[in-house]
Computed example of a mutant assay.
Amino acid sequence: MGLLSYDLEAVTRRIGGRAIDLDSPSTERQAAVAAILRPSSAPGEDAEVLLVRRAERIGDPWSGHMAMPGGRREPADESLFATAVRETREEIGLDLAEHGVLLVRLPDVPAMARGLRVGMVIAPFVFALHSDAALNLNEELVEALWTPIGPLARGELDGTTPYLHEGQPLELPCYRVGDHIVWGLTHRMLTYLVEALHRNDS
C-alpha cells in the first residue's frame, strides 16, 4: 500500500481531475451525500472529513447515526450532484458551489435499514473546501465534527460494533471516531473513499 500523504493537496491530486457522472438513470428512489474535505489547521497534516450526527427522530431508520450531509432527491433537483449541494446547504449552511470543488463520485450505495434494502440508492460526492465557511446545523442534526483522513486510511480507527439482526447477534465493521461509532452506510462510504485514495496511489 505504501506510505501515503493525506494532506488535502495530496488527496486532491490522487482522486481529482477525472470525468464525473453528475447524475444517474436509476429508476429506484435516489439520494446523495457530500463527503466534505478540508485542510488541517496545521500545514502538511492530514486533511479532515466532515461527519455529522443525526438528531433522534421517531420513524427515522437512521436516527442518531453518524452520517454525511445529504438526503433524498427532490423533483426540482436537476441532478444528484444538485441534490448533494442543496442538502448540504440546507443541513449545515455550507454552499459547496461557493466554497468547494468536486473531486470524485464514489460508488453508489444501496440504502439499508435494519438489514434490509429500502429501495433507494445513495450517490456520494467528494468535495474539497477551498475557503473557510462557518457551519450552521439545522434541526435534523445535533453535531458536526471534523476527523483526519489519515487514521481512517491507516486502519487506526477500525473496529466492530454489536448488532442484533432478526434475533441473531452480529459484529459489524465500524470506525471508532472519539466517542462515536461510525457504521453502516457511512462506514461503507468512508471505506470507498479510502479505497479510492489507495487505488490511485502511484
Rank of each mutant, 00 (worst) to 15 (best):
T161F: 03
G184H: 07
G178N: 15
L157I: 04
V182T: 01
R188E: 12
P173L: 10
R176F: 02
G167N: 02
H165C: 05
R188G: 01
E156A: 14
D158S: 14
G159T: 09
W183G: 05
V182N: 06
R154P: 06
G159A: 11
T186S: 01
R154L: 12
L170T: 14
L185C: 05
L157G: 09
H180L: 15
H165Q: 08
G184E: 07
L172D: 06
R176K: 09
L172H: 08
H165T: 03
H180P: 01
V182Y: 01
P173E: 12
L152W: 05
T161K: 00
G167I: 00
L157T: 11
R188N: 04
G159H: 07
G155W: 11
R176L: 04
R176N: 03
L172Q: 07
L152M: 07
P162K: 07
I181M: 11
C174R: 07
L185R: 04
E171T: 02
R154C: 11
P151L: 13
L172R: 15
G167T: 04
H180Q: 15
L170S: 12
A153W: 07
P169V: 06
W183K: 13
P169I: 10
W183S: 13
G184C: 03
V182K: 03
D158Y: 10
T161M: 03
P151C: 10
R188Q: 14
G155A: 12
P169L: 09
R188T: 14
T160Q: 10
G159W: 05
D179T: 13
T161V: 06
P173S: 09
E166A: 11
W183I: 09
H187R: 08
V182R: 00
V177L: 06
G184P: 10
R154D: 15
E171W: 09
L164Q: 13
G159S: 13
L172M: 14
L185W: 05
L185I: 13
G167K: 02
A153L: 09
H180F: 14
P169K: 08
G178L: 15
P169M: 04
R176G: 01
H180I: 10
R188F: 11
P173W: 06
T161R: 04
E171Y: 09
Y175R: 06
P173Y: 07
Y163G: 01
T160F: 10
R154G: 11
D179L: 01
R154H: 12
P169A: 12
V182G: 03
L170A: 11
L164N: 10
P169W: 01
D179H: 13
G150T: 14
T160E: 12
E156Q: 15
P173G: 11
H187I: 04
T186Y: 04
Y175Q: 05
G159C: 07
H165L: 15
L152P: 08
D158L: 13
T160C: 04
I181H: 05
E166F: 03
G155R: 12
Y175S: 00
L164W: 12
G155V: 12
L152H: 02
C174K: 09
C174M: 11
C174P: 05
V177Q: 02
L152G: 03
G184M: 08
P169Q: 06
C174V: 00
E156S: 13
G167E: 00
C174T: 01
H180W: 15
P162G: 00
W183L: 08
